[in-house]
Every structure is written in C-alpha cells, then in structure tokens.
Computed example of a mutant assay.
Amino acid sequence: MDNIVVEALVRALAVGTPLLLASLGAIVNERSGIVNLGMEGVMAIGALAAFAVAASAPDASLWLAVLASMLAGAALCTLHALATVTLRANQFVSGLALALIGTGAAGLLGKKFEGLPLFNKVPDWTLGGFTVSPFTVVALLLAGALAFYLNATRPGLTLRSVGENPAAADVLGVNVGLVRWLGVLGGGALGGLAGAFLSLSYRSSWSDNMAGGLGWIAVALVIFVAWDPLRAVAGALFFGFLYYLQFRLQGNSPIPTEVFSAMPFVLVLVVLALAGRRGQAGSAPAGLGRAYVRGER
C-alpha cells in the first residue's frame, strides 16, 4: 500500500513539474506587478526550441537544448515587456495575444518536426527505487530558491516592492521599468523551461498543442497559492495528482473519457472560486496589472 502511495506521489510530481515551473515563472512576473496570461504560448515556444536543438543531430547537447528553451521563452516575453512596461498597454490583452502568438508560431514552425525522432532524451534519475526526471528535482530546488530570493534577499525585496508600490520604489531610486523588464524575461525563461520538460523528458517528441492547456492552469495556480513559491509545490502536486487519476481511470471506468479530460480545468474553476471566497485574491501584489507612469498617482 505504501509503495502505491509513493508511486502516485512520484507520478503526480512528474505531471506537476511543468505546472510548477510555469507557475514559478508567473509568480516572478506578477511579483514585479506584470500580469502574464501568455504562459501557454511561452511553454509551447520553449518546447519547440528545445526539441529543435535536441533533434538537430545525434550528438546535440541536451544542455544547449534546455538553454534554447529558456532563451526562446524570454525572447517571446520581450513582446509582452515591450507592450506592458514600455508602452504601458493593457496587460491582460497583451498576455492573451502572447498566448495566441506563441501557440500559433510553435504550431506553424513545428510542423517539420512532427514525427521526427529524438536522438537522446534527458535521462531520468533513480531515487529510492523510483525514476525521477532531473527537471522535477530542478523545479523543486527552484521553488525553494525563489522563496528565499523573494523573502530574504535585497534584490528579491526590490522586486516585491516594485510589484506592491512602484511609486515608493521609484522614490527610493529603484529603476521600476528595468526591474519589471527583468521580471517578465525571467518568468518567460522559466516558462520556456517548462516547455523543455515536455519535449525532452515527459513526451520526448514534438506535436502541435504540446502544452495542452497546462499554461492556463499554471496562471490560475498562481492565484490559488497566493503568489507563494513554496505553496506552488503543493498546488502543482495537487493538479498533477488529478492528471494522474485521469490517466489511471480512463478505460477502467464507465464514465466517458471526456469527463476525465475536463476534470483538471473544472477543478481550476472550483479552487479559484474557493480562493475568492477566502479572500485569497486580496493577497495579490497591490500594483499588479497597473502600468506605472512616473509622477502619476
């Protein structure tokens, strides 16, 4: 019985890894005051960049493929930073556009990679008799590192202050625009890394709609965990367990498979409603979603 529980936790962590990485990226974005609804597109473009590099040659470096995914995610998010930080456009509209651009571009550019073999995937590690992806270990370490960075370092405090009260941070000499630019690009890099997990480790292939809605769940997960990196681990584990149940129960239950496919998205609505009832949305950074203009109140 204990082995079954541990196996379920390990599988849930594996499925929850891209959710955790993408939600950490969204936390970085939103702690700086910038809403990013485009994680679905960022994950898609990151997955494509990683697979394109890894499938280019039998001896292609997987580390280079991972780096390519992070650079691709950050590069795509430059559009979002330009629109929201520099041009002060509506952050929600820009994020939705980013999701469409990312998924559309990945689908178009990735057609030539569909069905191609991956010469070498990221090898799993064996820990305690169970196989674990290095991406999972890295995601857990990043969650702890980000929590420490935000709560115990001066740059982390600067990032949080820009998200809470950019005017006050500006008075203290903080370059609000630069901090927000870096926050958006850093979050984009983590979103791209989440995509690399999908194409290099979890599925080890490329196909259109690679993210499969995980980016949207990650955005909602940030609200559910109250913008806390350590709570994001528990949230990702919870939704990963739902996906694990979906795979285990399909074909072994009289319930139509469409019900299981919709279950994670239905649960997103439920947990967000519960978070709203608890007033959890009130813990959002005070400056979230608001463009900053020096001298305006």
Score class of each variant (00 low, 15 high):
Glu40Cys: 07
Ala50Met: 03
Ser23Ile: 08
Met43Leu: 15
Asn29Tyr: 06
Glu30Pro: 04
Thr17His: 14
Ala22Asn: 08
Met39His: 11
Ala49His: 04
Ala22Leu: 11
Ala47Cys: 05
Ile27Glu: 08
Leu24Gly: 11
Ala22Lys: 04
Ile34Thr: 15
Ala22Gln: 06
Pro18Asp: 09
Met43Val: 08
Ala47Ile: 02
Arg11Thr: 15
Asn29Arg: 02
Ala14Thr: 15
Ala44Cys: 03
Leu13Arg: 02
Ile27Leu: 05
Ala44Phe: 01
Ala44Leu: 05
Leu9Asn: 04
Thr17Lys: 07
Leu37Ala: 04
Ala8Phe: 15
Ala44Gly: 01
Val15Asp: 13
Arg11His: 07
Arg11Gln: 14
Met39Trp: 03
Glu40Leu: 10
Gly41His: 08
Arg11Asn: 15
Ala14Lys: 05
Glu30Cys: 05
Arg31Phe: 05
Val10Asp: 02
Gly41Asp: 07
Gly33Trp: 04
Ala44Arg: 00
Met39Tyr: 15
Leu19Trp: 14
Gly38Glu: 08
Ala47Tyr: 00
Gly41Met: 09
Ile45His: 07
Val6Met: 13
Ser32Leu: 12
Gly16Thr: 12
Ser32Met: 14
Val42Arg: 00
Ile45Leu: 13
Leu19Asp: 01
Ala50Ile: 06
Ala50Ser: 09
Val42His: 01
Leu48Arg: 01
Ile45Thr: 09
Ala47Asp: 02
Ile45Ser: 04
Gly46Ser: 10
Leu13Glu: 05
Leu21Gly: 04
